[in-house]
Amino acid sequence: MIFKKFVRAAAAAAALTTAGVGMTAAPASAAEAGVSATTLNFPGGQAQFDNNPGNGAQSWVWVWNNSQYSGTVRVDYQLYNGTIGSLQADWGQGHSLNLAEDIWRIRGCWHIQNWSCTDWT
């Protein structure tokens, strides 16, 4: 009986691992997480970050404003040390920034009459 429970638990853990669902603590860095590039589409814009941009920088973040409302968009980025920064663009503009540390996550924000933001990715 105990052996059957063990086998079922092992099979379930293997299935979760195969499906990409880990049962471990959050990684301390993007390298441990295997994160390289992430793209986020949100109302009026698009943002991306890359922790292996190939240009000599540790990471790179980019935002593009394709808003039809002539508003401003912004990408907020958070580093693994907790620091939060942002980069914004007006209608039809795109901006990028090289950073010396890995980016943990981003969120897209847009401004028409007030700021609205997506959840952190």
Rank of each mutant, 00 (worst) to 15 (best):
V7R: 03
V7S: 03
A13C: 08
A14C: 12
A15Y: 00
A15E: 10
A19V: 10
G20Y: 03
G22L: 09
M23D: 09
T24W: 01
A25I: 07
A25G: 05
A26P: 15
P27G: 00
P27S: 11
A28D: 11
A31Y: 07
A31M: 10
A33Q: 04
G34V: 08
V35E: 04
V35K: 00
S36Q: 08
A37L: 10
T38S: 04
T39G: 09
L40K: 00
L40D: 02
N41S: 14
N41V: 06
F42W: 01
G44N: 04
Q46A: 10
F49G: 05
D50S: 11
N51C: 02
N51A: 01
N52Y: 06
N52R: 07
P53G: 05
P53D: 03
G54H: 00
N55M: 10
N55Q: 07
G56T: 12
A57D: 09
S59W: 04
S59F: 04
W60T: 09
W60A: 08
V61P: 02
V63I: 08
N65K: 00
N66Q: 10
Q68T: 12
Y69P: 00
S70C: 06
G71V: 05
T72F: 06
V75W: 05
V75D: 01
V75L: 06
Y77Q: 04
Y77K: 05
Q78C: 13
Q78N: 09
N81A: 15
N81H: 11
N81G: 14
T83N: 14
I84P: 02
Q88E: 15
D90N: 15
W91C: 13
Q93R: 10
L97E: 13
L97S: 09
N98G: 08
L99A: 02
L99M: 05
L99S: 01
A100R: 06
E101A: 14
I103C: 03
I103N: 03
W104T: 04
R107I: 14
R107D: 02
G108F: 00
C109K: 01
W110N: 11
I112C: 08
I112Y: 05
Q113N: 10
W115S: 12
C117R: 01
T118Y: 03
T118Q: 04
